[in-house]
């Protein structure tokens, strides 16, 4: 982070916790997401990464504490979007998947097609525009999910392990896209359990284990000088629970 520069807060979480049926899944935690930065949520399987992203996006409501985000952009569009761990493809063509999302945020009908085509071109999917989205490969589906989210012009984009099921070349492609989005000023909050990916992409890191926020720091600090034994073990490749 450029030091003496005050940057806006894109998302602010305070004392948020979450439980289902009396089982505590997310223990009280507080943190902020700074505008324009890439926050990577790290943690082993079952740490609570997906839950945390759903809570931040508003798909789940915390049992206690607050999540502050501006749901609506001044221009009326939704200010944040989410890409899921397993892409959710509508039973429609690739193009119609994008126009449907645009229509949902009340983009005027006359602009739907143009903006959808723009998004598909941007992510190299125009050649597949008329194909049923569900018949695309895993990598193509994930790319479409990102294109569809990008089309909504979010300020803040949540991504839940966007490359978990992809091969190395598809992973590189997605990472390059995320780097571009970052360059355009989109704030990213993504989860991964891939340490290499976190090193390549993260500005800031949240390290979760067993539903608790164990460490929150800038990426360099986290990887070079982890403060907790759990983080050290995770970085060393030893599983923590």
């Amino acid at each position: 982070m450029p030091d003496n520069q005050v940057r806006a807060v894109a998302l602010s979480v305070s004392d948020m916790s979450f439980s289902i049926g009396g089982v505590q899944l997310i223990y009280p935690m507080s943190f902020q997401v700074t505008s324009g930065r890439r926050l990577v949520v790290l943690g082993p399987n079952g740490a609570g990464k997906s839950l945390l992203l759903r809570l931040c996006h508003g798909l789940l409501q915390p049992n206690a504490g607050q999540v502050h985000r501006n749901d609506l952009h001044p221009a009326g569009r939704r200010a944040h979007a989410m890409v899921f761990q397993t892409p959710v493809m509508l039973r429609r063509s690739v193009l119609d998947n994008v126009t449907h999302a645009l229509a949902a945020i009340a983009v005027p009908p006359a602009q739907l097609h143009g903006r959808a085509v723009e998004a598909l071109n941007r992510f190299g999917l125009m050649g597949l525009a008329e194909r049923p989205a569900r018949l695309l490969s895993g990598g193509e589906q994930q790319r479409l999910a990102i294109a569809r989210a990008w089309a909504l012009r979010p300020d803040l984009l949540f991504l839940d392990e966007p490359t978990a099921a992809l091969d190395p070349s598809a992973t590189r492609l997605i990472e390059a896209m995320l780097t571009d989005l970052h360059a355009e000023g989109v704030t990213l909050m993504m989860s991964t359990h891939d340490l290499g990916q976190a090193r390549r992409l993260a500005d800031d890191v949240l390290f979760l284990a067993s539903g608790s926020l164990v460490e929150a720091s800038e990426a360099q600090q986290f990887f070079n000088d982890p403060q907790t034994a759990q983080a050290r073990a995770f970085i060393a490749g030893d599983l923590v629970w």
Partner: peptide
Amino acid sequence: EYLQSIGM
């Protein structure tokens, strides 16, 4: 989840 995510 997706439909809720795009605010439907």
